[in-house]
């Protein structure tokens, strides 16, 4: 077993570290605030309300389901794009630990994802509120949200590690990656429907962000996502992890020297 696989195995068995430190990171962010992590919920609620108001007017949709569509999409988008943008600095931020301890590299990436996941869970409060408001009744198909979320997490982890590694090596990448990610927000069906693209639906169909969002959004709205979405994401997960493995083999061995 090579050192990358061993690193990953050790990261898994050392789950206590990344779980506790991931929670700690979020706690620290809101330490000495009055509302604490509730700020996450609050700020997301305000953002969602604002966007829902503006876009329902803009697109002229008076559908309550649209609001649920937008809020779910936004929550997943924020988690996934957050994993990438945070991922770019996930290893650089912990350079002191990397230089002075032999903690597995992957655990630093998961620690970052755990932070994002906690934010995501806080946002779920708003999501549930919106579901009640839109009178979406949970069905059995809503349970598809669980495999959906698992797949999203799996992808978030490799993205964080992948971008963490290459961004530690090439310091030009973080601003580039965040610019591209912001751009992707515009071409991803978050506050508009895929069908609105009409003849250009392909633009959404090849967009991995669209599929990741669909994994969660479709069950929330009451139906499992399209089977092609599951196939696309499963293949994407495998390819993503293989890519990350390749990058880790290339870069990880000397990471402690140049981080």
């Amino acid at each position: 077993m090579n050192y990358v696989l061993r690193d990953w195995q050790e990261a898994m068995s050392g789950w206590r570290f990344w779980l506790r430190f991931g929670i700690l990171d979020i706690n620290l962010k809101y330490r000495r605030t009055y509302l604490g992590p509730f700020w996450i919920t609050l700020s997301f609620g305000l953002t969602a309300a604002g966007l829902a108001f503006v876009y329902s007017t803009l697109f002229n949709v008076n559908d309550d389901v649209y609001i649920a569509y937008l809020v779910t999409g936004l929550a997943v988008w924020m988690f996934v794009s957050g994993s990438i943008v945070e991922g770019t600095s996930s290893l650089m931020r912990h350079s002191a630990l990397i230089r002075e301890s032999n903690l597995p590299i992957l655990s630093h990436a998961i620690r970052t994802v755990v932070g994002g996941a906690i934010v995501f869970l806080h946002n779920l409060v708003i999501l549930i509120g919106v579901m009640i408001y839109a009178r979406i009744e949970p069905t059995l198909e809503t349970l598809y949200i669980i495999p959906g979320l698992l797949l999203v997490f799996m992808n978030a982890i490799w993205m964080t590690l992948f971008f963490g590694l290459i961004c530690a090596r090439y310091r030009d990448l973080p601003p580039f990656v965040s610019t591209i990610t912001n751009l992707m927000f515009l071409v991803t069906p978050v506050f508009w429907y895929r069908d609105m693209l009409e003849g250009r639906a392909l633009l959404a169909d090849v967009n991995p962000f669209y599929h990741l969002i669909e994994l969660v959004r479709a069950p929330v709205l009451g139906a499992a996502a399209d089977p092609t979405t599951y196939i696309y994401v499963c293949i994407g997960t495998v390819v993503g992890w293989l890519m990350t493995y390749y990058v880790a083999v290339r870069f990880q061995v000397r990471l402690a020297f140049w981080i």
């Binding site: 570290f17 000495r32 002191a96 301890s101």
Partner: peptide, 23 residues
């Protein structure tokens, strides 16, 4: 002899988290 933790943590918390880090 560095303390690789956030400055906001209390001494006890630092001990706790160092313990977690060292399993």
């Amino acid at each position: 002899l560095g303390i690789p933790f956030d400055e906001e943590l209390s001494g006890y918390e630092v001990v706790k988290y160092a313990g977690i880090m060292k399993s």
